[in-house]
Amino acid sequence: MLIIIFIITLSYVLLIGSFVIGFDKVPVLQLKDAVVTTKFSIVIPFRNEAENLPQLLKSIAQLEYPMPLFEILFVDDESTDNSVAIISDFVRQFKFVNISVVKNKRITNSPKKDAITKAIDLAKYDWIVTTDADCELPVYWLDVFDHAIRTTDAKMLVAPVTFNLANSFFERFQLLDILSLQGATIGGFGVGKPFLCNGANLAYTKDIFRSLNGFDGNTDIASGDDIFMLEKAVKRDQSAVLYVKHDQAIVTTTSQPNFKALKSQRVRWAAKTTHYKNAFGKLTGFLVLLMNSLLVCLPLLWLLQVISLKTLAYAFTVKCLIDFLLLFKSARFFGQERYLSSYFFSSLFYPFFNVYIAFTSLFKGYRWKDRAFMK
């Protein structure tokens, strides 16, 4: 048993350790004053987002990018609240001639992929940027993308996402979780194994979307408009995929209000992992689940006197330390170090949460935006 514990723990340390090293290998984008030239079509699918749209629209109004160089396509996915009216009022008030609202057309089992596909068909410009209706955009968001496009040969840009508020322990738990995912995202790029991204802050050319046949091959899966597109792009030409490491590119979003909503979100995320084609992504998911499962089982093994308390403490401490190294780097980049004070207590709960979500996703569907989706 001790040998098994040692092998699992060592494998996990080597994996997360590689992300820690890889994190610093991704250079911070150095912006320089220059005339922006790239034209963007920003795609924002939404369904019943009346509560979140005002903050998103406020951040859109504050974008410093020249208005003639971008358009925004809101895609309404059968909203039953006053989301459309909120957008229409905003357009009239600020006289945004480059914002339009279109109706989604359901074709597949994935409403969001259908919405993005329709928007791309209508988009005027070659560069597509996707974000979500519950996000807030940084002032120089598009300027950073423009610089990355003009100074590299990238055809896909993966950019950072975090939560904007973390007042309660429940919110800080979610924040630390997403910071760890962002750390793994950046670290994966640093070791030359990109495997994660977030559709709340993603950009790619219309040409690459079409050359990869869009979302063909995974339209039966409700989520994954981001990860599966990344997998295809990396397989086609990894050198054309760039991580945009800059604090002015950070998009913020909201955490879930209660455990039921969090469970639904995480099950939705986890449900697509069995469909990953990226071998490194699969290995990472497996090792993370294996390590967390080990920590869930170790207290029971100690109670049964199969292992000593020292073994349990060593395994937990080693995992906490290597996780903290990656989390610290991520929190420092996002300017959210103050929330690390909740790390210890979060680390006690996380293994149980991770295992619970993983096994729930294997056997159950989930609800999202008042719709039921099967596994």
Rank of each mutant, 00 (worst) to 15 (best):
S211G: 15
P160G: 02
F189E: 03
S180P: 01
A154T: 02
G214E: 07
S168D: 08
D153F: 06
N167M: 10
Q182H: 10
I186C: 00
N167W: 13
L181N: 12
G217F: 02
N213K: 15
D177V: 04
T152A: 02
I149G: 05
F189A: 06
F173T: 01
D220T: 13
G199Q: 09
N201V: 12
N218P: 01
C197G: 04
S223C: 07
L165Y: 10
A166F: 03
V191L: 13
M156E: 08
A203P: 00
L176D: 00
N198H: 13
D216T: 14
V158F: 08
L202Q: 05
H147R: 02
L165A: 08
F169A: 07
I178F: 08
D143W: 08
T152L: 05
L196M: 12
Q182V: 07
K155C: 07
K206P: 09
Q182G: 13
L175S: 01
F170D: 01
I208P: 02
N201H: 13
K155P: 06
R172P: 00
N198C: 15
K155R: 15
P160S: 03
N201S: 12
H147G: 05
A159C: 09
N201T: 12
F195A: 02
A166T: 02
G183F: 07
D146N: 15
Q174H: 11
V158K: 07
L202G: 00
L202V: 09
T152I: 07
A166P: 00
H147A: 10
Q174D: 04
T185R: 05
T162N: 05
C197I: 10
A166C: 03
D207G: 11
D177N: 12
L142A: 05
K193C: 07
D146S: 11
L175Y: 05
Q182Y: 11
F209N: 00
L157Y: 09
R172L: 02
G187A: 03
F169W: 07
K206W: 13
L202Y: 02
L179W: 10
A203K: 04
G187R: 02
G183D: 04
A200Y: 13
S223G: 05
D153W: 01
N218R: 10
T185V: 08
G187H: 12
S223N: 13
A148F: 05
S168V: 13
V161T: 11
N213L: 08
L176H: 06
N167K: 12
K193R: 14
V144L: 01
L175D: 01
A166D: 01
I149W: 08
K193Q: 15
F195L: 04
F215R: 01
L196R: 13
R210E: 15
D153M: 05
I149H: 08
Q174A: 04
R210A: 10
F195V: 14
